[in-house]
Amino acid sequence: MGKKTKIALAIAAASAAVWAGTKAVAKPQKREDKDVLSFTRPIVLAHHGGAHLAPEHSMLAFEKAVQYGVDGFKVDVRLTKDEEIILFHDASTERLTGVSSSVKDLTLAELRELNIGENFECLEGNYPYKNEQVEVVTLRELLETFPEKVVYIDIKDAPDTYEGSLMPSKLWRLLEELQATNRVIVSSNYSEQADRFNLYAQNRVALGAGDADITKAYTSFTSQFGHLFNPKVDVFEVPLKSNVMNFDSPKFIKFLSDLNCHVLYTEINDLVTMSRLVRSGATGIITDRPDIAETLLKKYVNV
């Protein structure tokens, strides 16, 4: 036996010993149950209210989505100049309104002078709201208008900005005031924002995974040391694939489900994929097409 072979075998043996040792002592901590995640069937959340059917984050979109029976909404939030929490994805208003301004530099009143339906192109290829006034919606208005719906809230302001530094505390106070803590999920691409929010919430609100949480979970899943993974969030909102990470796997769903974590697949807009994912064990889907998802809901609603 050559020297290199002996070294390789020694390394393999050492690795196996480490794995066996950690496997014997590891006790992964499951996430505690949250009321908002107590569904007994797959759920459907309308992405930005159903962004392919009406202007995103508009009351028009939310009302239309409700007509198709969705369980709730996935929304993005930002802070205005006068510190109102509004539903808005971009840092700039340009894509939606044609007016180039930063959300953080405008008050709620100033934002409501803009038409967020200006550039919305409907499925038929025309622009039905170009000459109408479609206004920005606040998170307060959404929660008060649809008190029975689940709302997945994604904080878009970065933690190192003034707006981002204020958002976790302001969001917590709003949810507490409206007694909405048991029907929301709070997340951010910046995992630090969910951590900051949880300093106020103290695990009383379901938390969604940030980019760092998702990467850590997937790396653990694909390694030999998945048994060492202890999640700090309750929900993983993922696409089918991102770069080299392929989330489209029943095994990935089970890996997280065993830790009482839930998987929501985002921006799924065809019925075949929706059905396949829920058969694989996904908690639900987030879609721009609640009209298509209605068929899926009707299949499970009476189960």
Rank of each mutant, 00 (worst) to 15 (best):
G2R: 12
A12F: 12
A13S: 14
A14M: 13
A20G: 13
G21W: 13
A26R: 07
A26N: 10
Q29N: 11
D35C: 00
V44T: 13
H52P: 01
A54Y: 12
F62N: 05
E63R: 15
K64I: 03
Q67R: 15
G69R: 13
D71M: 09
L79M: 14
T80G: 08
E83I: 00
I86R: 08
F88T: 01
D90I: 06
A91W: 10
T93Y: 08
V99Q: 13
N119C: 03
F120R: 01
V134M: 10
E141R: 12
L142H: 06
L143R: 09
F146C: 07
P147H: 10
K149I: 06
V151S: 08
I153E: 08
I155A: 07
G164Y: 05
E177Y: 08
V186E: 02
N189S: 06
S191P: 03
E192Y: 07
D195G: 00
L199R: 12
L207A: 01
S220W: 10
T222S: 14
N230V: 07
L240H: 09
S242D: 12
F247P: 00
S249P: 00
I253H: 02
D258W: 04
N260C: 05
H262Y: 15
E267H: 09
T283H: 13
D291F: 09
A293L: 09
A293S: 12
V301T: 09
